[in-house]
Design a protein around this nucleic acid. Structure first.
Length: 835
RNA sequence: GCCGGGGUGGCGGAACUGGUAGACGCGCCGGAUUCAAAAUCCGGUUCUGGCAACAGAGUGCGAGUUCGAUUCUCGCUCCCGGCACCA
């Protein structure tokens, strides 16, 4: 005898044991069926799963299970983004090595993932801190070094002079160190860079070949890459031989330049600062903003006249040179020409420092006072050149070409494409990361570690003291011999940015056990990832770096596809009380407690129901109760009375349902119509991955089946009700299987249905059941709802109009007025326009 | 500051290609059951007026296009994400 009470713990354990024993999710390459690679962004092993993880992984799991029921060969792997700063912080706090802390977290979080019933192929699990993983990243880096795609140069870091350590941007709070509150300094040190700019054009144009990425992500990436065509202009500097290069996209405004400005780190500024205390102090002050662009750009725009004179490349006129805190050293040439009349920021700066504002662009046909154009703000629109010597009268296009030609002829500039995108700095002065496989030899310079000496293994038994990376003080690690000359040499002690590991893990899952190479031919079977799921916060950096890596691996001959992720779903944040759930805010909800109290299916159901995947999800404890209530009702309906027998009779092995629906009574036909409408809607929403309305359809279907069941038990109805109830239950179980797999697995088994639910066919609506004899049509008068009419499905336009005009309430609103127009929207609405 | 996204009842959200605003769920109110409570079941629930039928208002604010706008256009406002060393 079956229990009518839902016991999630028992049935979830049984379902998970079944999947384990059957190795249901262990996948291999197969020529049968289309492959479908579904991937969720792997977690940083911070200790415990949070609701954001649960949401991310439930979405991925629902998609995986759904695609599998569509007959595809679905791979869904999982792993750990195991390197990173939090492990070092935890190490300091708890006096435990980062490696141990990380591995313990992984073990705990793996258990949590298993409890949630995610359909992962665990044999492919990887952790990026494993030398068998990062050795291939080191290997690729060396190949890229040989191809001149990586290089070393100096770049700024945040430096805490008290702790004698480099700080991440996150660790700089209001220009000060987060631990000791000392004012942070900017420090230039040599670092490794990867030439992502060499791929800027492809990264940009290939975005057009990603139609299944959200448009917003593609737009953000386009803007981030920031391709612009402009002119590199050289201003002379009075009394100096070398000129000052600036880049502008508005050469048409060149004759309106009234000053130029350089970044605080620019060589010109540094030089002047040497014997000018004010300038030096200003530059020093700018350093306290740290290195992040947000903090620099949010500053009040300030500057100082360097006392130098720049020589205009066309007029020969002298204009002042400022050092300004809003000029970014990393963009363009680290220097800008300023045209206050036609750029808002320059305009504000000029107002503040009483610099002349010279109008050189006016709207076409403008004959008013030119200065009036810029009295309140800059005039930034393109137009016609004025006061521009020989260029006067030209439009933007003409001026661009003419000025470019003039500058090129006089060797004062050239047309150039500029990118906002900068090369990727991958050096980190931290311990818990993959060692950069390079050796510094006093004689030979930089020498890569020979391939047969890889991996360069990170020592794991270390003490973290907060003053720099322990391997920098560990001769056993850094002392080595030069592979070229054999003399004493030192290893690089910086480690890779952890974005390196997360840029190629998706590919390694395909070749997870390959010990001889980074990837093998299996990667080309599984790649590209068909569906990638992760947080919108990764829209730019991670996704751009992974795209870049994919192209690097392609050009290294490892794979043949051009892009890593065919389709992308960016899930929204999990919020509580309006802000992101986070430890620091203290507003977290522990999914573990919820799973313990309600079971995994309830947590999965709530997560899918509360909001569509792409939107932020507001946490609501009461709504979890609602999800649990639904599952109890679902269990009860299916196990109640003789319902399991009905399901067995309908669906059991060898049974072929043959029902004469045409001769069922009107209520039965109406109900069946609704069942199939709900199924149709659910299928449409499933295909769109809009799971909240799928759940809603499931809830409606359950409510409806309760009505059917009670009509059936009243005893006065025909046996088509038995069939309808069984059909409805069958549909509901299969429809909800991807979302709440445990309860569906259990009910499917109890119903004596042969075969695993995992591989059951997806239910399809019966076209016959979707047809209706009568249709309700809404009647509006002047766009306002005034009545509803019921009319035969194939009614003529005239019949519909007559019926609409004949409605009593409609009559009240058209009486004594003239009907000017009647708009009929087939099967939906009539709008009577009266005057 | 720059780039991107969002704003609908008391709450989460729904509304297919511009066509009934508020599906589904939560909460709340009323009822059944119970000695009582929990659980469960039934009914109601945008606001205002009305016993009701119904009417008026209503999708952040202000304009516009349209027979008709949550949906399209423009301006504003508030909130969220990213800004290259958090992951």
């Amino acid at each position: 005898m079956t229990s009518h009470v839902y016991h999630p713990r028992e049935i979830e354990q049984q379902a998970q044991d079944y999947w384990d024993e059957e190795q249901s999710f262990k996948m291999s390459e197969s020529s049968e069926g289309e492959k479908f690679y579904c991937l969720s962004m792997f977690p940083y092993p911070s200790g415990r799963l949070h609701m954001g993880h649960v949401r991310n992984y439930t979405i991925g799991d629902v998609i995986s299970r759904y695609q599998r029921m569509q007959g595809k060969n679905v791979l869904q792997p999982m792993g750990w983004d195991a390197f990173g700063m939090p492990a070092e912080n935890a190490a300091m706090k708890n006096n435990v090595p980062p490696a141990r802390w990380t591995r313990e977290n992984i073990d705990y979080m793996r258990t949590q993932l298993k409890q949630l019933g995610f359909a992962y192929d665990w044999q492919r699990e990887l952790a990026t801190c494993d030398p068998d993983y990062y050795r291939w990243e080191q290997w690729l880096f060396i190949q890229l070094y040989k191809k001149d795609l990586v290089y070393k140069k100096t770049a700024a870091v945040n430096w805490c002079p008290n702790d004698m350590t480099v700080l991440a941007n996150e660790q700089v709070i209001d220009g000060c160190c987060w631990r000791c509150d000392t004012a942070v300094e900017r420090k230039e040190i040599p670092q490794w860079f990867m030439k992502i700019t060499a791929y800027a054009d492809e990264l940009l144009t290939e975005l057009d070949n990603l139609p299944d990425w959200p448009e917003k992500v593609r737009t953000m990436q386009r803007n981030w890459i920031g391709r612009s065509k402009g002119i590199e202009v050289v201003f002379g500097i009075e009394g100096q031989d070398t000129g000052l290069k600036v880049f502008t996209t508005r050469p048409d405004t060149l004759m309106g330049v009234s000053y130029v400005a350089v970044a605080p780190e620019h060589a010109l500024a540094t030089e002047v600062a040497r014997d000018n205390a004010d300038i030096a102090a200003f530059i020093k002050e700018c350093e306290h903003a740290g290195t992040s662009e947000a903090s620099i750009e949010a500053l009040e725009k300030r500057g100082l006249d360097l006392g130098l004179k720049a020589i205009h490349p066309i007029s020969g006129e002298q204009v002042p040179v400022y050092v300004a805190n809003f000029v970014l050293i990393g963009y363009g040439e680290g220097a800008v020409m300023a045209v206050p009349a036609h750029d808002q920021r320059d305009w504000e700066f000029a107002q503040k420092y009483q610099i002349p504002i010279r109008v050189v662009i006016t709207p076409e046909g403008y004959d008013g006072d030119v200065d009036a154009l810029v009295s309140d703000a800059a005039h930034v629109d393109k137009g016609v050149l004025v006061n521009s010597a020989e260029f006067t009268g030209l439009n933007f296009r003409q001026a661009f070409d003419a000025i470019a030609a003039y500058l090129e002829k006089n060797d004062r500039g050239r047309v150039r494409v500029n990118y906002r995108l900068r090369d990727w700095g991958v050096s980190r002065q931290r311990y818990w990361g993959a060692p950069i496989p390079m050796i510094n030899c006093p004689d030979c310079g930089v020498v890569p570690v020979p391939e047969d000496q890889l991996p360069v293994v990170l020592p794991e038994e270390v003490v973290i003291d907060g003053e720099g990376s322990p391997i920098k003080k560990m001769p056993a690690f850094y002392q080595t011999t030069c592979p070229e000359c054999g003399h004493d040499a030192q290893r690089e002690t910086d480690t890779f940015d952890t974005f390196m590991e997360s840029s190629w893990y998706y590919a390694r899952y395909a070749s997870y056990d390959q010990g001889e190479s980074m990837l093998d031919q299996r990667a080309d079977y599984w790649l590209p990832v068909d569906q990638y799921v992760g947080g919108i916060e990764h829209a730019i950096l991670h996704l751009l770096y992974a795209r870049f890596f994919h192209k690097l691996m392609r050009d290294a001959g490892l794979i043949t596809s051009n892009e890593p992720f065919s389709r992308l779903l960016t899930q929204g944040m999990v919020l509580k009380d309006g802000s992101k759930m986070s430890k620091s805010r203290g507003n977290t909800v522990d999914p573990q407690e919820l799973v313990g109290k309600y079971g995994a299916d309830t947590v999965r159901l709530f997560t899918m129901f509360a909001a569509p995947p792409e939107q932020s999800l507001e946490w609501n404890g009461n709504a979890v109760e609602g999800a649990s209530r639904f599952l109890k009702r679902f269990w009860k309906l299916v196990t109640d009375n003789d319902h399991l027998d009905l399901l067995a009779a309908w669906k059991g092995p060898g049974n072929v349902p043959a029902v004469d629906w045409q001769n069922a009574d009107a209520d039965c036909r109406k109900w069946r119509h609704e069942v199939h409408c709900l199924l149709q809607q659910s299928n449409r929403d499933f295909a769109k991955y809009q799971f909240n309305t799928v759940v809603s359809a499931g809830m409606k279907l359950l409510n409806l089946l309760y009505d059917v069941a009670s009509a059936r038990h009243s005893g006065t109805v025909g046996n088509t009700y038995d069939a309808l109830l069984a059909e409805g239950i069958d549909i509901l179980i299969r429809m909800l299987a991807p979302i709440v797999p445990h309860i569906c697995h259990a009910l499917w088994g109890l119903g004596g249905v042969g075969g695993a639910l995992l591989d059951a066919n997806w239910p399809q609506a019966d076209p016959q059941a979707l047809l209706r004899d009568n249709i309700e049509i809404v009647v509006q008068v002047n766009g306002k709802l005034r009545g509803k009419i019921n009319i035969a499905a194939g009614a003529e336009q005239q019949q519909i109009e007559d019926a609409a005009l004949g409605d009593d309430n409609v009559q009240r609103f058209i009486k004594g007025r003239q009907v000017r127009k009647i708009i009929v929207v087939p099967n939906k609405l009539v709008n009577i326009v009266v005057s």
